[in-house]
Amino acid sequence: MLHDLCGRTHQVSANEDIIGEGERPENVHLVMEGFACRYKLLSDGKRQIMALLVPGDFCDLHIAILGEMDHSIGTGWGCTCVKIPRATINDLTTNHPRIARALWWATLTDEGTLREWLVNMGQRRADKQMAHLFCELLVRLQTVGCADEDSFEFPISQSDLADTLGVTPVHVNRVLQELRAQNLIVWRSKRLQILNVERLKAFCDFNPNYLHLTRRANGDSSE
């Protein structure tokens, strides 16, 4: 059944919204390729990106239950999604407990990631915050086979990165220069390479526990 669902992919163009704030669509979107993001636009035009969504991430699973979107989901870079009808999600959660548990796991992991981003934003210096995001993306993308041992496609702009970290593009530029100068990263041709993964993880005190990648010993799985 899941295989059938994943056959119906559609391409979302760069700078297109997958779903906008206030909408209540009939489909849930699953990212298959590329990057999408959760974001909120303020009345003065400022934007905060609250999550980066990579292949395997549900964009809007909760919309099957909640009334309407309280934020927007879009892609500044283009991505491929699958639309899963809300009725199918309801059927899966009602009649397939293992899948329901996996969807629950996905939601809890999203929350864990959001908590870590909050810690990053509130307590980590901008250079460590950025390093932490790079370590997180490497691990998440490796999990779904979209990164090699030390690099991944990273199509976003410095301005997108600034809106993700909640710092100015000037600070992003300075921090990138600093991380490059320390031989920690190379970001070229839309590909981010981490030159020494263990050193970068140590630099930003990265602990992937919030991604909940290990299964419980009782055999419950995330799939």
């Binding site: 100015t168 593009p169 000037v170 530029n173 300075r174 220069q177």
Partner: peptide, 14 residues
Amino acid sequence: RLSEDHEGKAGMWF
């Protein structure tokens, strides 16, 4: 004053 490192914003005041 932003240095040449900032390309399009070089010369602007931050």
